[in-house]
């Protein structure tokens, strides 16, 4: 019995199979955001359809739901009513803000005119806000508490239950 072969082989086998077994449960596309727990980067962006510039810090004192989306993003269409309805329901307690990037302003105004809106939608400047927030795709939603700290990030279209769960977290 060659002890060296057995030992080296056992180490390689255990390490390899162990790592692969661990990895089987994970989704390689699910990346944690490093911004959770940090102050949300401040920005002032143009509201769609007007020339008004809206500053994120104006909403300090209330939890904020910050949703990145675009009109070419199919799951965002499904998410839109969830956001507009909940925004209306929670209006005074929670501030909803939408940021659109990589899109055409006319398409955005048409979209909103057709489907309605209950909270401000801002237009990003060359994707710089998205980059500062580490946005990879759309839709992605950040939940800020009343101090402006990011308490959670959700990637993908939200459902009402998920949304309310995260809002609860932001209100704590």
């Amino acid at each position: 019995m060659n002890r060296t072969v057995l030992l080296v082989g056992a180490i390689i086998a255990a390490a390899l199979v162990g790592v692969l077994y661990f990895a089987l449960g994970k989704d390689p596309q699910a990346i944690d955001s490093p911004l959770v727990g940090r102050i949300a980067p401040d920005f002032a962006l143009k509201a769609v359809g007007s020339n008004e510039s809206i500053d994120l810090s104006r909403y300090r004192g209330k939890p904020v739901v910050l949703n990145f989306w675009a009109t070419w993003c199919r799951p965002c269409w499904d998410e839109h009513p969830v956001l507009t309805q909940n925004a209306q329901a929670m209006g005074d307690r929670v501030q909803f803000v939408g940021v659109v990037f990589q899109d055409d302003e006319k398409k955005i105004t048409d979209f909103l005119r057709e489907r309605g809106w209950t909270y401000p939608t801002l237009v990003d400047d060359r994707g710089k806000t998205a980059i500062a927030y580490g946005v990879g795709g759309v839709p992605e939603t950040f939940f800020l508490d009343k101090h402006g700290t990011i308490v959670a990030k959700y990637t993908g279209p939200l459902s009402t239950e998920l949304l309310q769960g995260y809002v609860q977290k932001a209100m704590r």
Binding site: D42, S53, D124, D125, K128, A132
Partner: peptide, 18 residues
């Protein structure tokens, strides 16, 4: 002028902050 002023006040997050 108003548009310029409004645009000038537009400020995406900047790397310098970080």
């Amino acid at each position: 002028l108003f548009a310029l002023v409004a645009v000038a006040q537009m400020k995406a997050p900047d790397a310098e902050q970080f």
